[in-house]
């Protein structure tokens, strides 16, 4: 078990470096903005990262074999909030530190003058073009090769720039001491940041600690209405915990959409519109 844990955190470190490198290359466009003093800093920090990322690329490929997404079927959500409590319990989070949270949305429009409400569970959208990753000054927030957006709480300086950049307001901060928690991995790792580190940012980890072992994310497992699916773009499968379906069919047949698509963040969380009418 400890050996496995060590491997896990090492792969995460590799993932971070790989992403840093890509971001570094993307960032070249803005190099002109940074003043002269910046020029001296870049080779010192970026070059070693680049070399290590190349050397250990094989492990990245292994992680990247799965490309996780989430699908939320709002036809099934009746605001039971079991996803919220299960997530909090399993990640040892304070109440109010919600990595997944259902909002009640009131709709009034010309076709529906009396209005109706629906429930919308929101979580980190694990954007492919993640604004949080772009703005982090220390590379603590990064894209894992399997699609999750993770936070390295050992590196995070707690500036909250990622919270400012996130269009979905899903990030929370460890203002106070975290809840006591068993330290399974020996130290908080980005895939399973438990226990939390005070003074750092936290957000849904997509339960990569479970999915990499073939287990379901806690919210998927806890939902009594099977409203949350976890899917894999690589194998084109998705499961709500009870049945497994073709991911592409699930998305196409039900006109799935993504939240704030117009921002071009390319979220990895899809929604199927509805208002709890399919309660099972």
């Amino acid at each position: 078990m400890p050996d496995e844990a060590e491997t896990e955190s090492r792969t995460a470190a590799v993932a971070r470096r790989a992403v840093s490198r890509r971001r570094f290359l993307q960032g070249l466009g803005v190099a002109g903005v940074a003043a002269g003093a910046g020029g001296a800093l870049i080779p010192l920090t970026a070059l070693p990262q680049r070399e290590r990322a190349l050397a250990e690329n094989a492990e990245d490929e292994k992680i990247a074999a799965h490309q996780w997404v989430m699908v939320i079927d709002m036809r099934r959500c009746t605001n039971e909030r079991d996803c919220m409590s299960s997530c909090r319990k399993n990640h040892y989070l304070h109440e109010g530190q919600e990595w997944i949270k259902t909002y009640t949305i009131e709709t009034h429009n010309i076709e529906d003058p009396h209005g109706h409400s629906h429930y919308m569970p929101t979580l980190c959208m694990h954007c492919q073009q993640a604004p949080c990753v772009k703005v982090c000054p220390v590379g603590a927030t990064f894209k894992s090769p399997d699609g999750a957006t993770l936070v390295d709480q050992d590196r995070c300086i707690g500036c909250r720039m990622c919270m400012a950049a996130c269009p979905y307001d899903v990030r929370t901060f460890n203002w106070d001491d975290p809840l006591p928690a068993p330290n399974v991995l020996g130290k908080p790792a980005p895939e399973y940041p438990v226990p939390q580190r005070k003074g750092t940012v936290n957000v849904c980890d997509m339960c990569t600690h479970n999915t990499r072992n073939g287990e379901l994310p806690h919210c998927v497992d806890a939902c009594p209405n099977q409203a949350i699916f976890v899917g894999d773009l690589a194998t084109d499968l998705a499961t709500d915990g009870k049945e497994t379906v073709r991911l592409s069919e699930l998305l196409q047949d039900n006109d799935a959409f993504r939240y704030k698509e117009e921002l071009n963040t390319q979220p990895r969380v899809f929604y199927i519109a509805g208002h709890g009418q399919d309660e099972s």
Binding site: G27, V30, L41, V135, A140, G158
Partner: peptide, 27 residues
């Protein structure tokens, strides 16, 4: 205003030039 003020050095050793806070630090 940092949550982890003692790690401010990370802004130098893990500098990310795409971050506006990096531009701030340099400027």
């Amino acid at each position: 205003h940092l949550g982890q003020p003692l790690r401010v050095w990370n802004m130098v050793v893990h500098a990310q030039i795409s971050s506006p806070l990096f531009w701030d630090m340099v400027a």
